[in-house]
């Protein structure tokens, strides 16, 4: 019989607490909006911030309240998610072109000159504060992998030659790496229609680029001459390719003497 009292006591306490909780949660329940929950369920939930909000919940809330009327801001979700959100909210989205990030530098080991040996913190942003990084080229990839660390999809790796590279299958164009690169080397390019990318950012004069890196764009204008549609343009000793005019014929990549266009 001794056991009855403690059992009864604990059971009674549990009952009181349980009932109290049930009562309180019923009385004080915050009305959860199903509409917002649905939008949140459609979003991929990686909280990458590519949409410009603090996370998926922030974007869902803004869509729900009407503070944001563009259904196509979710880069990782792409077209599918945009369509779904459009259905739920009635907001339209422009057709989302799938994009991937690309690191615009090929100045790896034995390609680009280094000016000093860096042995500080393993962070590009740190290294960039010391004379702009170890590379003699002011636009060289520092290669300490800040972009690889922030990538939520594990799509960026620093290759053995000291250059960060993006695996385009894994990249979901969330722009986390774009924001973190101290050299602004990473840009988004179209994934499907393969517009050749100029893998160099150097605006040094041709000769000066040549001195610090064997794969840098020297501004020779060969691509400009060979391009049948006027998409390639050299400004400030740097070739740029206009994605809208490019027909992806690949001529510029063939003629580039330094292999900067790929």
């Amino acid at each position: 019989m001794q056991i009855i009292i403690p059992i009864g006591f604990v059971a009674a306490l549990a009952l009181v607490l349980g009932l109290g909780l049930a009562f309180v949660s019923e009385k004080l329940a915050v009305p959860v909006d199903e509409h917002e929950e649905h939008i949140l369920a459609v979003l991929p939930g990686v909280n990458c911030g590519a949409c410009g909000f603090s996370g998926c919940a922030g974007y869902a809330k803004a869509l729900h309240t009407g503070a944001e009327t563009n259904a196509g801001l979710c880069a990782p979700g792409g077209d599918e998610v945009a369509q779904e959100i459009g259905k739920l909210t009635g907001f339209s989205s422009e057709h989302i072109v799938p994009q991937v990030a690309v690191v615009r530098c090929q100045g790896g080991e034995n390609v680009a000159k280094k000016t000093y040996h860096y042995s500080g913190m393993r962070s590009c942003r740190m290294a960039a504060q010391l004379a702009g990084g170890v590379k003699a080229c002011p636009c060289g990839c520092i290669g300490l992998g800040d972009c690889a660390v922030v990538c939520p999809y594990d799509a960026i790796r620093v290759c053995p030659d000291g250059i960060a590279r993006v695996e385009s299958e894994k990249c979901r164009a969330c722009k986390a790496c774009v924001a973190v690169c101290p050299k602004d080397l990473i840009v988004l390019v179209q994934k499907e229609h393969p517009v050749p990318a100029v893998l160099c950012c150097s605006t040094l004069k041709g000769g000066d680029t040549r001195k610090v890196c064997t794969k840098g764009c020297i501004g020779c204008k060969k691509c400009e001459k060979v391009c049948p549609n006027g998409a390639a343009k050299v400004t400030n000793f740097m070739a740029r390719i206009d994605a809208d005019r490019c027909i992806a014929c690949g001529e510029c990549a063939k003629v580039c003497p330094v292999g900067a266009i790929q």
């Binding site: 009292i5 403690p6 006591f9 604990v10 306490l13 549990a14 607490l17 349980g18 109290g20 909780l21 309180v24 949660s25 004080l28 329940a29 915050v30």
Partner: peptide
């Protein structure tokens, strides 16, 4: 009631309930 030996069990129960309660109240 001479039930001091129930302290641990009862306190865990009370703390768990309390945290839940606190969560509901704060949320509101």
């Amino acid at each position: 009631r001479g039930l001091e030996y129930l302290q641990t069990v009862v306190f865990i129960l009370v703390i768990a309930g309390l945290v839940q309660l606190l969560e509901v109240v704060l949320k509101r």
